[in-house]
């Protein structure tokens, strides 16, 4: 009898033995641990939402749904409304995405398809390094270097050339939604480009060969085969970027000008929910003020969840249409 056969025989001796072996193998324990880990996430999200809801009761009772469309934020008059901040948050985040997505995709395509081998690693590393710069450094650099040297001249030119469009109405300010969005765009760039580069790299070689063998140029292969194939992944990358853009606080606070402005112009200063909270939480001297700030946090929380949900649905629809694996 071989050693293995003997060992198997011994292993199956009793029920008790199997039970202990199961525990020893850790199947049960491992399962419990992973379930626990997953639960922590759910509980945390739920607890944050609940806590924000409960601790903003004063403000919710006083202003009701009107809080969302209130245009005034006046601690002296004890009158609080969230509209300028909701507007500023959405506007700066979307503008940042509009600027960052094309560039990010360009970087991803260059890194995965076009760059020579010796350049891929170093360039990819540099792009990822952008994500490692602390956001307060972006804010400081933006305020003292980027805005005066780069943003202001462009803003002036946009205003002079296209000032008749509400989007580019004057007067032109240095710190503005435009400045904040540009720096936000730089900050979300590494996320978008690194994730979509990985999406491109994961597309099977057979897809590229199929396109090229049909006489597609490299550009046709990229635009008509790779991008549609990776679309759901690219959308995922954009959403990760959106998440960062919505919640980014310090750099935006330093650059957006912090002004209750509801005009369409991106050249005017604005305000976001995150910058409002960070600017005023130390000054909230009476309960209604504090609870109004907490309600702002609740709104930011809800908007982030909602946008993520919509984005998930979008990805799901695209994925259902395209990425079922080829059966062979």
């Amino acid at each position: 009898m071989s050693v293995i056969v003997q060992a198997k025989k011994n292993a199956g001796v009793s029920r008790w033995k199997t039970l202990t072996r199961r525990l020893e193998h850790g199947d049960t324990i491992f399962r419990a641990l992973t379930i626990l880990a997953a639960l922590i996430v759910v509980v945390t999200v739920g607890a944050i939402g609940l806590q924000l809801w409960n601790t903003s009761a004063l403000s919710r009772d006083k202003f009701g749904w009107g809080f969302l469309i209130g245009q005034d934020w006046n601690p002296v008059a004890q009158n609080f409304g969230a509209l300028p901040f909701i507007y500023g948050t959405l506007q700066s985040a979307l503008l940042a995405l509009v600027l960052a997505v094309p560039v990010g995709l360009g970087i991803a395509i260059f890194l995965s398809e076009l760059a020579p081998d010796w350049l891929r690693q170093p360039l990819g590393f540099l792009v990822e390094l952008l994500a490692a710069v602390p956001s307060v450094v972006y804010g400081l650099w933006g305020l003292f270097v980027f805005v005066p040297i780069f943003v202001k001249p462009i803003a002036d030119a946009l205003n002079q050339g296209l000032g008749f469009i509400p989007l580019f109405q004057g007067p032109v300010f240095g710190p503005s939604r435009f400045a904040a969005s540009l720096v936000l765009a730089i900050m979300v760039l590494p996320t978008i480009s690194a994730v979509s580069r990985d999406v491109f790299l994961a597309i099977p070689r057979a897809q590229r060969e199929a396109a090229l063998a049909l006489g597609a140029t490299r550009w046709e292969m990229i635009s008509q085969v790779l991008v549609p194939y990776g679309l759901s992944g690219i959308l995922g990358a954009v959403i990760l970027g959106l998440g960062r853009a919505l919640g980014e606080t310090i750099a935006v606070t330093m650059l957006i000008g912090n002004n209750l402005d509801l005009t369409a112009s991106i050249l005017h200063p604005g305000y976001t929910m995150a910058s409002l909270i960070v600017n005023e939480f130390t000054e909230a001297t009476y309960p209604l003020y504090l609870q109004a700030l907490i309600e702002i946090a609740l709104v930011l929380f809800a908007i982030t969840l909602l946008l993520n949900l919509i984005a998930r649905l979008l990805i799901w629809r695209v994925a259902r249409r395209t990425t079922t694996e080829a059966r062979v």
Binding site: A206, Q207, E209, A211, T322, A326, V328
Partner: peptide, 12 residues
Amino acid sequence: GMVFQRPNPFPK
């Protein structure tokens, strides 16, 4: 033209 070892239709 070319046909490959494994079928490689586009996801279209």
